[in-house]
């Protein structure tokens, strides 16, 4: 283990990627970003676009954050089912995961928006029938789920499948011996999952989970297909009416890169810290 670590470090040093070496790709990206920012601010035309597109930033972030939080919760549940000792639970979770992972995210989005949401409304109406009949509440209509909600639901259902697999891998990465030791001490299966397995599993998959957030930020642009006013949608609308495609998409790309590259750097730092922590 320490042996391969040394070899890895030596290899990196030889290729000029050691801790002290300059990450040129990052320097190039930063320069590109600074140059773009300078160009944007120097030009009145760009400033208008900047302002137009930036008003979608809130939607992009909100959609990403809500969908991410929800898919973490759903993904954890699915991941636990996936590593359950009960075969039926495992099979059901695997069924869901494989089904969803086999679909393009855009198709999931359309499906939830145009099939799922009306179906959900119909299901709710059937469920609440007595209440609706008595006039206590009005019938639920598909229209009452706005497209941003449907988009978040779709992203959540899609990402939960990926996140479930990450959790499962994390749970499987925990040393079997420690699980046996916990059982031998009399811990219940729930206690050993909560107190022994999950804390270590989580630590092992933290970088992978953080990477999913970067991915969800990028995929949040798909909500523009439903007309939700995120960065991409505002860029699409603005450029279509002004024909300034080049400038508009420069700005759109700039916003996404600011978000994703900074997040990726955070993930790398986190990864390094965790590795150092484990080697301590």
């Amino acid at each position: 283990m320490s042996d391969s670590g040394e070899r890895g470090a030596a290899g990196r040093a030889r290729r000029g990627e050691g801790a002290g070496a300059v990450p040129w790709w990052l320097v190039a990206l930063l320069l590109l970003g600074l140059w773009a920012l300078a160009a944007f601010l120097a030009s009145p035309g760009y400033r208008v676009i900047l302002r137009a597109v930036a008003s979608g930033l809130g939607v992009t972030l909100r959609v990403s954050l809500v969908a991410y939080a929800a898919s973490l919760a759903l993904g954890l549940g699915l991941g636990l089912l996936r590593s359950s000792r009960l075969r039926a639970c495992r099979e059901a979770a695997t069924f869901y995961i494989e089904l969803v992972r086999g679909l393009p995210m855009l198709v999931i989005l359309y499906y939830i928006a145009f099939v799922g949401a009306p179906a959900l409304a119909a299901a709710l109406n059937a469920l609440l029938k007595p209440l609706i009949a008595s006039g206590a509440i009005g019938a639920v209509e598909a229209r009452s789920f706005d497209f941003a909600t449907r988009a978040v639901l779709a992203l959540t259902l899609g990402y939960a499948a990926f996140i479930a697999e990450i959790f499962r891998a994390g749970i499987e990465s925990v040393d079997r011996g420690q699980i046996e030791a916990a059982r031998a001490l009399g811990l219940s299966e729930g206690q050993l999952m909560r107190r022994v397995v999950l804390p270590q599993a989580l630590r092992n998959v933290l970088p992978a989970l953080a990477n999913e957030f970067v991915a969800i930020v990028k995929d949040s642009s798909l909500v523009s297909a439903l007309g939700v006013q995120d960065i991409t949608q505002l860029g699409k609308v603005y450029s279509a009416s002004t024909f300034r495609f080049f400038e508009t998409y420069n700005v759109v790309a700039f916003f996404y890169l600011c978000l994703t590259v900074s997040l990726s750097l955070l993930v790398r730092a986190l990864e390094r810290r965790l590795k150092r922590g484990l080697a301590r």
Binding site: D175, G177, A181, L185, G186
Partner: peptide, 24 residues
């Protein structure tokens, strides 16, 4: 007591010893 010790890697020595008495 196991050949590979099987201590809980995320807990201190003290926590390793006090976990089961607290939970069980």
């Amino acid at each position: 007591v196991f050949q590979a010790f099987n201590l809980f890697a995320h807990l201190t020595v003290l926590e390793n010893v006090s976990l089961a008495p607290r939970l069980v």
